[in-house]
Amino acid sequence: MSVPHLTLARGDITKQSADAIVNAANSSLLGGGGVDGAIHRAGGPEILEACRALRASHYGRGLATGQAVATTAGRLPARWVIHTIGPVYSSTEDRSELLTACHTNSLAIADSLGAKTVAFPAISTGIFGWPLDNAARIAVAALRAATTDVEEVRFVLFNEAAYQAFEDAAQQ
């Protein structure tokens, strides 16, 4: 186990060829907006079926914030989707440990699957309102502190502002 190689890409995470793609999901695991909706749409009904099965068995109340679970990737160019529930940003409560847990728990799931390449979005920076620069610092620090068999972690950033925030964090 070692620290994974970190790379950055600008683009659409649903088009990334990787062993696993991380989904910034909502707790229901049944799809939603943003990255979650895009992954469900591009991956097809197989992902939703797998998520419904998880809800029917182990996660009747949904997945807790910071936790992660894997399903098939359906039609995506990956083997698995790792769903993680990011925290909603709060200016009055420090929830950075939960955001860190999204990354470390996703890597633990990737390890259990034998994944060597994992693509992450900018978790919690969309509708959950986490400031990009802070989320990028937390995500990069979490991955640099991780020991894993994953060889490459690729942050796939949808726009230039996100890419720049992660590039700045990676250079620190």
Rank of each mutant, 00 (worst) to 15 (best):
H83W: 10
V81I: 14
A70L: 04
A101H: 01
I85D: 13
W80D: 06
W80K: 05
P87C: 14
T100Q: 08
A78N: 00
S90K: 08
S57M: 00
L98F: 06
I85Y: 14
E93D: 04
G86Q: 03
G60I: 11
L99W: 04
A70C: 03
Y59A: 04
R61M: 09
V81K: 08
A68S: 13
A78W: 00
Q67V: 02
E93C: 00
S90C: 06
V69E: 06
V69D: 05
L54A: 15
R61F: 10
S57H: 01
S57N: 05
G86I: 04
R95K: 15
S90Q: 08
T72D: 04
R55H: 12
A70W: 02
A64D: 12
R75I: 00
R79G: 11
T71A: 10
V69H: 07
A101Q: 07
E93H: 07
H58W: 05
T72N: 04
H83R: 07
D94Y: 07
R79I: 00
A68V: 13
P87Q: 15
R55C: 15
Y89S: 07
A78H: 00
G74T: 09
D94Q: 07
A68I: 13
G74H: 09
R95V: 15
T65W: 07
T84P: 03
Y59D: 02
A68H: 12
Y89C: 05
G60M: 11
T65D: 06
T71E: 10
W80E: 05
V81Q: 09
L54K: 15
Q67I: 01
Y59N: 02
T100M: 03
T84Q: 08
R61T: 10
E97F: 07
T100D: 06
S90N: 08
Q67W: 06
A78Q: 00
A68N: 11
T84G: 08
T72L: 05
S96M: 02
Y89V: 08
G74L: 08
R55D: 13
L54N: 15
V69S: 07
A73R: 01
W80P: 02
I85N: 12
W80Q: 05
G62N: 04
P77C: 08
W80A: 13
R95G: 08
Y59I: 03
G66S: 13
E97C: 00
T72S: 09
L76E: 01
R55I: 14
V88T: 13
L98G: 02
T92I: 12
L54I: 14
I82P: 05
R55Q: 14
Y59E: 02
T72W: 06
